[in-house]
Design a binder for these strands. Structure first.
Lengths: 218, 218
DNA sequence: AACGCAAGAATGTCTTACAATCTTATTGAC
DNA sequence: GTCAATAAGATTGTAAGACATTCTTGCGTT
C-alpha cells in the first residue's frame, strides 16, 4: 500500500540551496561574463561558511557554469563564439530529436500547451525582442523536452541551455546564429505538429495510450 | 612572439587529483553499483582532508557519477534499465551526428586510424567479448568525436560514456541493447567511411584543406 | 519475531589556522 | 614620467578541530 509512497519531508540542505541560488544568479546574469567570484564576498552574501560555498562552487564548476582557475578562484566564463556555436549545434541536435519523439509521445492536454507556447514563440520572433525570444523558446522547448520520453535528453539539454543563458549579455554576436536556429526549429516543429494532428485525427476512434518506451528503432 | 605561448607550469591541485582518481576508480568499477562511499575511509585511502574530499565528491555528483543523499552520504548509483536505455539513446544520437560531421572534417592520417579502430571493433563484435567490445568501441568513437569539429559534442558524449561505464558490472541486462546500438553505428559508420573515401578520391587533385567551422546547415 | 532504546558511526556545517599564490601599492633608479 | 623591484594586502587551497544532527547497528524486553 505505502510501499511506493515516500512521505518523508527532506529539508533542503545548505548545500542544495547554495548551489541553486548561485546557479540562478549566474544564469540571470548577476555576474558579468569574465568576472571573478570572490569567496569571502559570496560567503557574506549567501550567509554560509567557506567550506559550504566551496562545495557548491565545485558543483557549478562541473556544470560548466563557472570556471575555477587554481590559485585565482572561480570566474563566470566568457563564451567564445566558437564554443557558443558548438553549444547551439548540439542543442539543436537534441531539440530536433526531442521534437520527433515528442510528436509520438505527447499527451493531448500537452499538445494545447505546446501550441500556445509555439504561438508565443512566434510572436516573440516577430517582435525581435531578444529577451522574449529566449524566454518563450525556453518555455516551448521545456514542454517538448518534458514529453520526449527521455529524461537524459532533457537533462543534457537543460545543462546546455543553462550554459548559454548568461551569454545573453552579449546579444549582438549571437543574434544571427540564434535566430537561424530558432527559425529552423520552429519550422520543423510546426511541420511535426501538423503531422501529429493528422495522426491523432486518424486515431480518434481508438483509445489513446502512450506507447511504451523501448530501445529506439531507426 | 611569446604572446600565445604559456609556458607556466601549473602543479596539479589536490582537488584535481582527487577528482580524477575517484572518477577513474568509479568508472573502473572499484565500487559496486549501489555501494556507499564512506568519507572517512576515502580520506584515509586518498590521503586527503575531509573538506578536500567533499569538494571532489560534489564535483562527481554534478557529473552524475555518484549520488549524494543528504545525511546518508555518497553512493555509486545503480543504473535502472530505463535510465541506461535513455543514456544509450542520447549517446547514439550524438554518435551518429558525430560520424556525419567527422566524415566531412577528418584529416587523412586520422582516416587510417579510424579504419584500424573500426576493424578492431568489428573483431571484438565477432568474438562477443564484452570488455573488448567496450574498449574498442571507446577507442573508435574517441577518434570520431575528436574529429567531429564540435568540442561540446565530444564533451557531452564523454560524460555519458562515463555514466554508462560502471554499469558494465551488470552486463547481462545491457548486452542486448548495447550490441544492437553498436551494430547499427558500425553499419552506418562503414557506409560513411565508404562515402568519405569516394569523396576524397574525387578531391584528390585539389589541395585538401579542412573546412572552416561555421553554424551547421541542414 | 517485533519493537523500543541506546550506542556508535557518519554526515553536514561551521570555525580556526596557515602556507602559498596572486594582486595591488609603494619605492627607488634612470 | 617610466619601469623594475619589493613589500603589503587579499585571496585561495588545504587541513584540523568542533559539534549538532541523522542514520545505522546492536541489545534488551515483550
Amino acid at each position: 500500500m505505502n510501499s511506493g509512497l515516500d512521505l518523508r519531508i527532506t529539508p533542503r540542505t545548505v548545500q542544495q540551496q547554495t548551489i541553486e541560488k548561485l546557479r540562478l544568479a549566474i544564469i540571470a546574469g548577476v555576474f558579468p561574463p569574465g568576472s571573478r567570484l570572490v569567496e569571502s564576498q559570496l560567503c557574506a552574501q549567501l550567509g554560509v561558511s567557506r567550506p559550504s560555498l566551496r562545495e557548491a562552487l565545485r558543483s557549478l564548476q562541473a556544470e560548466r557554469l563557472i570556471e575555477i582557475i587554481p590559485n585565482r578562484g572561480p570566474f563566470v566564463p566568457k563564451l567564445s563564439w566558437e564554443e557558443a556555436t558548438e553549444i547551439y549545434d548540439v542543442r539543436e541536435l537534441l531539440e530536433v530529436a526531442a521534437v520527433g519523439r515528442c510528436a509520438a509521445l505527447i499527451a493531448p492536454e500537452q499538445v494545447k500547451e505546446l501550441e500556445r507556447a509555439l504561438k508565443a514563440f512566434e510572436r516573440a520572433q516577430k517582435s525581435e525582442e531578444s529577451l522574449d525570444m529566449v524566454t518563450t523558446a525556453a518555455e516551448f522547448y521545456a514542454i517538448i523536452l518534458a514529453n520526449c520520453g527521455n529524461a537524459i535528453l532533457e537533462e543534457v539539454h537543460r545543462g546546455l541551455v543553462a550554459r548559454i543563458s548568461f551569454s545573453a549579455a552579449d546579444p549582438c554576436r549571437l543574434r544571427g546564429a540564434r535566430r537561424t536556429v530558432f527559425r529552423r526549429c520552429a519550422t520543423s516543429t510546426m511541420r511535426l505538429l501538423r503531422a501529429m494532428k493528422s495522426a491523432r485525427a486518424r486515431r480518434q476512434n481508438a483509445t489513446w495510450t502512450r506507447p511504451r518506451l523501448r530501445p529506439s528503432v531507426r
